[in-house]
């Protein structure tokens, strides 16, 4: 008790005791791990940001994108289905700071790189509501009118010790802030090999859509088209970033091919919608009978069985 009295009546001893108390947890969970390998992993394929990408990342930070978008896919089934392969520790070695975020008001962006063509990002950043009518994302059209700050970006590259060439600087001089942020977005997750989370093959799909001629399904499909496809293929399927579907339908592709195209997409050109497709749900458009139904993926069985087991859940 006498010791106690001393502790609470000597401010210096008390302050030291408090400092030591808070430092124990600090040292164990924050300071010591810094010297372990687990904190500094780097994937072989990981490259430092180019000057244009870094300029884009600076803009991403400046606009506070991190407040609404995370950049880390959790090793959870639903996260992986929605976004793609879960995040690896070795993807972030050049990230100062990390931009994992803490809130998904918008979707995660860890697998956004290469998911859409550049054009999609230009148009979507300029006017997100053209793609999703009720999207709450602010318009970033002003980035189209601003030139990249070349000198600043060079000094940033130097501060980070990232290599760059004269050609990179030339490119910077001719770029808008929109060019930069699109370049950055397309670089996210580039170190991890793309793999389709759900790859649908021919054997899984009927040759002819079982919904052929079903009016309800056509209506549902039209709604789905407006929500998910019209941004790229146009409100009337006339084509925009993606090709004209009027022409596509005229070509009378077999149902199964259409189905597989929608489910699997084309890398870098069109995302696959397999994971987001609802069972017994129809994607169709006048004269375009596409069904996206019944992805009875045998996921629980053989093929993708292995895929589940890689998750830490």
């Amino acid at each position: 008790m006498s010791e106690n009295k001393k502790l609470y009546s000597n401010a210096l001893i008390f302050s030291l005791a408090a400092a030591i108390t808070v430092l124990i947890g600090t040292i164990v969970t924050m300071f010591l791990p810094m010297f372990t390998e687990g904190m500094h992993p780097k994937l072989k394929e990981l490259k430092p940001y180019t000057a244009l990408q870094l300029a884009g990342r600076d803009i991403y930070q400046r606009e506070g994108c991190v407040n609404c978008h995370t950049q880390t896919v959790r090793p959870l089934k639903s996260d992986v289905l929605m976004y793609g392969d879960y995040s690896k520790a070795g993807e972030f070695a050049y990230d100062r700071p990390f931009l994992w975020g803490s809130k998904r008001t918008g979707p995660d962006l860890a697998r956004i790189g290469g998911k859409y063509p550049d054009d999609w990002h230009y148009q979507h950043m300029t006017n997100p509501q053209a793609f999703y009518e009720k999207s709450n994302m602010p318009k970033y059209a002003f980035l189209n009118d601003r030139k990249v700050a070349v000198e600043k970006t060079i000094s940033h590259m130097k501060a980070l010790g990232f290599p760059y060439t004269d050609a990179d600087i030339e490119q910077l001089k001719n770029s808008t802030e929109m060019d930069a942020i699109v370049a950055y977005l397309q670089s996210i997750g580039a170190a991890v090999a793309k793999k389709a989370i759900l790859q649908i093959d021919e054997s899984m799909v009927e040759e002819v859509s079982p919904f052929a001629g079903n009016k309800d399904a056509v209506l549902k499909g039209e709604r789905l088209y407006k929500a998910e496809c019209a941004g790229c293929h146009g409100q009337n399927a006339e084509g925009n970033i993606g090709g004209s579907l009027v022409d596509y339908a005229a070509a009378e592709n077999p149902d199964r091919d259409i189905y597989l195209t929608i489910a699997n997409g084309f890398e870098g050109a069109m995302p696959g919608f397999a994971a987001a497709c609802k069972s017994n749900f129809f994607v169709t458009y006048p004269r375009l009978k596409v069904q996206c139904r019944a992805l009875r993926l045998s996921m629980t069985k053989k093929k993708s069985g292995r895929w589940w087991s890689t998750l830490r859940v």
Binding site: M34, P41, R96, H156
Partner: peptide, 12 residues
């Protein structure tokens, strides 16, 4: 730019 990178940056 944060002195700490990636996972370490997140932990700090």
């Amino acid at each position: 730019y944060h002195l700490f990178a990636g996972v370490n940056s997140a932990n700090v």
